[in-house]
Simulated assay, not measured.
Amino acid sequence: MDNQELKLTSAEIGTLWGEYVNGTAVDMINKYMLSIIEIKLLFEDAIKIFATHKKQITQFIENEGFPVPIGFNESDLNKNSKRLFSDIFCLHYLHIMTLHGLLGHSTSLSSSVRKDLRHFYDSCSNDGMNMYHRTTELLLEKGHFQKDPYFFSGGNPEFISGQKFINGFFGDNAL
């Protein structure tokens, strides 16, 4: 079905609106961090990627006759403020925000009907996965990736018989 025949649904407008406002907030933080850090390439790329996404979101919203959200902009950014964060903190921030973006894009995709919008969220997810790999590799390289704890096998599986497995949970004499 042609996209011209399908109007954006309320869910689609809502996800675009959320992507725009959240994206502009993260964009301003990324621009601040870019101004204070030495690890610039990832932040420059993140800013460029969002500029492309922002343009596409704006087109979707305007084509439906809705006003574009105000969002956050350069007036919300004080590039002359003192440095507040280390490069490693900024890298962790970008990594975590990338994870949030991946979750948001997949949620937005799941509520999208129009083909052009679904392709847009596919593209956003691909950009996010690429950034996730890049931030992970850089954090690993710098020795700052927070890995999950390891799990060591206790041997063979056992079947539960009775309620002794509860001992220690409610105290030694729970049963």
Rank of each mutant, 00 (worst) to 15 (best):
G155R: 00
F89K: 02
R114V: 03
S108Y: 12
F50Y: 15
L42C: 01
N63Q: 12
K142Q: 12
L6R: 13
S112T: 03
Y121L: 05
D148M: 10
L84Y: 09
I37M: 11
H92N: 09
W17H: 14
E44F: 09
P157Q: 08
T9L: 05
D27H: 12
Q56L: 13
Y20P: 11
G154E: 08
L140P: 02
A11G: 08
T9N: 10
I57G: 13
D172V: 07
S161C: 06
I61T: 03
H95Q: 03
R134Q: 15
N30A: 14
G171H: 06
G18N: 10
P67G: 06
E158T: 07
E64T: 10
K40P: 10
C124T: 08
T58F: 09
V21D: 09
N78R: 04
F165D: 05
G154C: 02
M129D: 01
F151R: 02
W17N: 12
N130Q: 11
D27Q: 06
M33F: 15
F152T: 04
Y20T: 08
H53Y: 01
K7T: 11
S123I: 02
H133F: 15
N80L: 10
C124P: 01
Q146K: 11
E141T: 15
L99R: 06
A174Q: 00
K55H: 12
A174H: 00
K82D: 11
N173M: 08
F85M: 10
D148N: 01
I47E: 09
N80M: 06
K48G: 02
E19I: 08
P69S: 04
L77I: 07
M1L: 13
M33Q: 10
L41G: 09
W17L: 13
